[in-house]
């Protein structure tokens, strides 16, 4: 198991390096002069722009700038300065990250709390009326773009019923609608995945065995079927969490929440390439870490993977004994 963890961690490093290099390279070829952007709007003479370029180090060779940029990120966690506002991107990202993170965490919690029981119920009562209703509703939610859901929620709960605020991020109330809007689509998909996973297990032979030896249906479902169905679901939860982190961008924009996604959208529209590269690399890092944790959790829970890695040393021992 330790071997597996180390291996996974080692794979992470070149991956993150490559992400950084590719993002920097791509952004470098985007048309538009960073020096001109940094000077702000208004007319500037050629000398002014040239001076600024020199000051920003833009005249140095590409490879030198790339090495410096990647080095700064990996050694000092420094993403440079924003072109338009001149602020340190690192601090900006750190102050915004909690909002995005909260939205993603509460979204995934909502997804699990609602989706898991619903998925189990619909699998156990497959083809019942409740199952069909749930399938219909989840299919519909799955097809609704989250920004539209968000707008409809605002329309109903903030403008008509006046229960919840429609923008801002100061109290817990501000997070209710964003979290719901961010999770509805994923929740629908998740419910169906739980159902599919559960159905597959319920139809397997050991469940028939459990039933045939006279176990109560309750015990069959919760002690035999559920733990086995949950193993693949763990991976699904990890992936959903990752995509909710990315999807939070949309609700952040709709509900004016100062998260990373909003920062990224503003950076792209304002052609602030430093902030843009920094934001994207930051999200990629977070996402990769979440995927790593998911894989590790999966390996820890799933005996097959443990066996794969335990197998090698045991086999050697057996060979030595023989």
């Amino acid at each position: 198991m330790v071997k597996y963890v180390i291996k996974r961690l080692l794979i992470m490093i070149p991956l993150l390096l490559a992400v950084g290099i590719i993002m920097f390279t791509l952004m470098n070829f985007v048309p538009g002069d960073p020096a001109q952007l940094a000077l702000g709007s208004g007319v500037h003479t050629q000398e002014e722009i040239e001076l600024k370029r020199e000051a920003m180090g833009l005249n140095r060779p590409f490879v030198v700038r790339l090495t410096e940029y990647i080095g700064n990120i990996f050694l000092h966690f420094d993403f440079g300065k924003s072109l338009t506002s001149g602020t340190e991107i690192k601090y900006e990202l750190m102050s915004r990250f909690p909002y995005t993170f909260y939205i993603a965490v509460f979204s995934i919690l909502l997804t699990i709390v609602v989706g898991l029981p619903l998925g189990i119920y619909t699998a156990v009562h497959a083809n019942s009326l409740g199952d069909k209703a749930s399938l219909f509703i989840t299919l519909l939610f799955d097809c609704m773009p989250s920004f539209w859901t968000a707008l409809l929620l605002v329309l109903l709960f903030s403008l008509n019923l006046r229960w919840l605020p429609s923008s801002g991020a100061s109290t817990w109330k501000h997070f209710v609608l964003p979290v719901i809007a961010n999770s509805l689509g994923g929740l629908a998909g998740f419910t169906r995945q739980v159902r599919a996973s559960m159905l597959e297990v319920i139809r397997s032979d050991y469940i028939t065995t459990a039933r045939s030896k006279g176990l109560k249906e309750h015990a069959v479902v919760y002690n035999h079927a559920l733990p086995n169905a949950l193993i693949p679901i763990l991976t699904v939860i990890g992936m959903r969490f990752g995509s909710m982190l990315g999807g939070a961008t949309i609700v952040e924009v709709v509900f004016s929440i100062p998260g990373i996604g909003q920062y990224l959208v503003n950076a792209i529209s304002g052609r602030d390439y430093n902030a843009c590269t920094g934001g994207i690399i930051f999200i990629a890092f977070t996402f990769s870490v979440i995927m790593l944790l998911t894989d590790l959790l999966y390996a820890w829970v799933d005996p097959r993977i443990k066996a794969q890695y335990a197998g090698a040393s045991k086999r050697k021992k057996v060979a030595a004994n023989a």
């Binding site: 991956l15 791509l26 990315g246 961008t249 990224l264 843009c276 994207i280 996402f287």
Partner: peptide, 21 residues
């Protein structure tokens, strides 16, 4: 392909939009 998997889909699409316009 692993490189692509380091990004949430929407963020990856946003990154390409930033590059291409």
């Amino acid at each position: 392909l692993d490189l692509f998997q380091a990004f949430p889909t929407l963020v990856l699409a946003m990154a390409f939009c930033a590059v291409f316009g």
